[in-house]
Nucleic acid binder design. Structure first.
Lengths: 198, 198, 198, 198
DNA sequence: GATGAATGAGAGTTCATTCAT
DNA sequence: TATGAATGAACTCTCATTCAT
């Protein structure tokens, strides 16, 4: 009733929304979109099934929100890497280490599905791909910077950024949480390949 | 008694099986396992739904057969690369080009799903992972050979093989057939990174 | 948090369960287990198909619940006969009359199927047979009592109970509701056979 | 081609038909009509599925043939009892013993299903019931004869016949082949009940 | 006649979504 | 707003029947 309550309501709503998205991310990454039941998401979020629909209009809607949030978070993360002090190697190293510590693998899985699956509407695919490409810029900037300092091999920076990110994604997909078979030290080795002097 | 030709029956059976698997590979790669209806597979194979079950006991069974066949085919392909004449670079180049021309991207998608999804029985996951690791050997052999000739950067050969394959997979997943956005020339650039003298 | 009335929910749930079982009993008795569609049960219960599965996990599960409930109800009924005042003949007469008025014929059909069909899991068969045997006790008690008073022919009481119940079942199966061909007076004649003085 | 062959063909055909019916009887009695697959019948008969349809037009057709044959066989059996030498007790005893040694239980099961199930066309039900009633005559004749000799309790002979047969059927359904729990001696005890002097 | 692969309608079961409380 | 019972379309799998060989 009072403005205070309204504000609080808004905040509660945002929290619930975020909480639902967190659960959805985890579950969908683990089982895939169409194998995930809305009930699974609800259970993990500690919310009733019906209540989910007060925050999202459909399962697809949740997925779409997940992609938006994931790509935005990734953008922030990539810019944080670019904002790091030190050499290009230091920055990429920071990026690499933190990538593995974050839930990037989960988002990576979702994005890949979004880009490749016929079940996803074209509109969404295009948005995701465009945003993905745009999100390469901070990495490309780091690489360009490194090339100017003579640290990094020559080549088109966007191309190298794509190669590097693909490599990270590819390795990520072989190194699922709970499957520690492949040492994460390998990511560092991969990074070496980009360096001029190795 | 039996007016049927047993040999011919056997042969027809094998053909049908293979035809169903081909269709299943295409459709599942495009839509994901659980979003693919058995009816989709049947339709693409030009077979009735019921008849599918004369050849496979369930959708899961089809998926499993697909993984087996895919990993076997990949093994043959990797060994063919190892069997090529020429330098390590030539061999990897052959591998790279042919990877992109084959249906490797489809199988890559399936294998990734098999390794990562909670919906896949542990037994199958382990088998897939073990076979995957084993399948790195021909690539590792090419790399080792190249290292001895001074062509390829130093480092543990299995590790470099994993990095290289991950890179290919990562790129593959950004370059779906029908989505020619990313030039396949990029794969060649990626290959350069492994070379000592670049 | 929960705007629902838990007690009322519990009660509604129990009612629905019972309502579904009632319908299932009728329909399965009329058509047999495997010829009965879950949709038939749902329709007769005035419930949607999907909702049935909120109460029972499968058609088999419904059948099993039906057997449990039916044998328990029969036990109560048999003990009520034993609890009647009067001579053994009076008690058996009460039993006979009420048997025909109740839905015993439906349950009889189900139990017979459960005992004899290969499609029923051994575990369930054994449980049903054991309970059936145990349920003969009240009748055997009436007979023993009648023998001591000189009303009833001599012989092992459990054996005579089995004979009597089999007779009732056999007659029941010739006298389906809606098929009034065989007068129910015949049951009384059958009862006479057990009496010493006839 | 030659008349000889034609005759032989006829004979082979009759044999096959009978062989299929035998298998059908066994399997349907064990699993129920609708739970029995035509493939089950074919397998047990050692015949291909398709070939069944050269002899019968449908599963229902097989069932109907089974009922006809079963009731005819039963009639022959009942008349054979009537044709036995000796007292009424001897004849009923012969009937009882041979009933248990024959496949009467299987036919009993089928007939019961035919009479009671909604899935059976009315026309067939009526035919079965009429024939059943008619088939009581030989037993009723034995009973009447016994009554005249003072061996058997008084009462309407058809009614007593129905009671006796129901008793046999009821006991039969508690004493499935392979379930020897209930001693078959009990049938003799049941017979005693009909005797005047016991 | 004999075979068994092929068909497709139909059954059991699941699950996204709605709605009364 | 929160709940979970209810709905029914859709999916997987089965099986009576047909048909090419």
């Amino acid at each position: 009733m009072s403005p205070r309550n309204k504000e609080k309501d808004q905040q509660l709503r945002a929290e619930r929304t975020s909480q639902i998205l967190d659960s959805a991310l985890t579950v969908i990454a683990r089982r895939g979109l169409s194998a995930t039941k809305v009930a699974d998401i609800a259970e993990m979020a500690g919310v009733s099934v019906g209540n989910i629909y007060k925050y999202f209009s459909s399962k697809e809607d949740i997925f779409e929100a997940l992609l938006h949030r994931g790509q935005q978070e990734y953008r922030d993360f990539a810019e944080e890497a670019w904002g790091q002090a030190g050499s290009a190697k230091d920055r990429l190293s920071w990026y690499t280490v933190n990538w593995l510590n974050k839930r990037e693998w989960a988002i990576t899985t979702l994005l890949q599905h979004a880009r490749t699956s016929e079940t996803i509407p074209e509109r969404l695919k295009q948005a995701v791909s465009a945003k993905f490409k745009d999100n390469l810029r901070p990495i490309a900037a780091i690489i360009e910077d490194g090339q100017q300092r003579g640290e990094i091999v020559s080549g088109a920076s966007m191309e190298l950024a794509l190669i590097y990110v693909s490599m990270m994604e590819g390795l990520t997909l072989h190194d699922i949480p709970g499957t520690p078979e492949l040492s994460s030290g390998i990511a560092e080795s991969a990074l070496q390949l980009l360096l001029r002097d190795r």
